[in-house]
Simulated assay, not measured.
Amino acid sequence: MTRRLIQLFLGLSLYGLSIALIIRADLGLDPWDVLSQGVFERFAEPAGLGFGMVVNLIGMAVLLLWIPLRQKPGIGTIANVLVIGSVAGLALRYIPADPVLPVRSLFLATGIVLNGVASGAYIGAGLGPGPRDGLMTGLVARTGWPIKAVRTAIELTVVVAGWALGGSVGVGTILYALAIGPLVQIFLPAFTVGKEDGRKTLPDREPAGPA
Rank of each mutant, 00 (worst) to 15 (best):
residue 139 L to D: 06
residue 85 G to Q: 12
residue 82 L to R: 09
residue 93 R to H: 14
residue 79 A to Q: 04
residue 111 G to V: 05
residue 126 G to E: 00
residue 98 D to H: 15
residue 105 S to K: 02
residue 80 N to I: 12
residue 108 L to S: 09
residue 96 P to T: 10
residue 114 L to V: 00
residue 120 G to E: 10
residue 80 N to F: 05
residue 117 V to T: 08
residue 98 D to I: 00
residue 105 S to V: 14
residue 80 N to A: 11
residue 103 V to L: 15
residue 141 A to C: 08
residue 93 R to T: 14
residue 127 L to C: 11
residue 132 R to V: 12
residue 109 A to F: 11
residue 146 P to L: 15
residue 137 T to F: 13
residue 138 G to D: 01
residue 136 M to I: 13
residue 137 T to K: 10
residue 100 V to G: 14
residue 147 I to T: 11
residue 144 G to V: 07
residue 76 G to C: 06
residue 78 I to Q: 02
residue 101 L to E: 01
residue 93 R to G: 15
residue 94 Y to K: 02
residue 82 L to S: 13
residue 116 G to Q: 01
residue 125 A to F: 07
residue 85 G to A: 12
residue 103 V to W: 03
residue 140 V to H: 03
residue 123 I to C: 11
residue 129 P to C: 07
residue 119 S to Y: 01
residue 135 L to R: 04
residue 100 V to Y: 01
residue 96 P to M: 06
residue 93 R to V: 09
residue 95 I to D: 05
residue 104 R to W: 00
residue 136 M to G: 10
residue 80 N to D: 11
residue 138 G to L: 03
residue 149 A to V: 15
residue 85 G to H: 10
residue 144 G to N: 02
residue 127 L to S: 11
residue 94 Y to Q: 06
residue 120 G to N: 12
residue 125 A to G: 00
residue 80 N to W: 02
residue 94 Y to P: 01
residue 112 I to A: 02
residue 74 G to N: 09
residue 107 F to L: 07
residue 119 S to F: 02
residue 114 L to Y: 08
residue 77 T to Q: 05
residue 136 M to N: 02
residue 141 A to Q: 08
residue 97 A to L: 12
residue 145 W to F: 13
residue 100 V to L: 12
residue 93 R to S: 10
residue 120 G to V: 12
residue 94 Y to A: 13
residue 110 T to H: 05
residue 136 M to A: 00
residue 127 L to F: 11
residue 85 G to V: 00
residue 77 T to D: 04
residue 124 G to M: 07
residue 83 V to L: 00
residue 79 A to F: 06
residue 90 L to I: 14
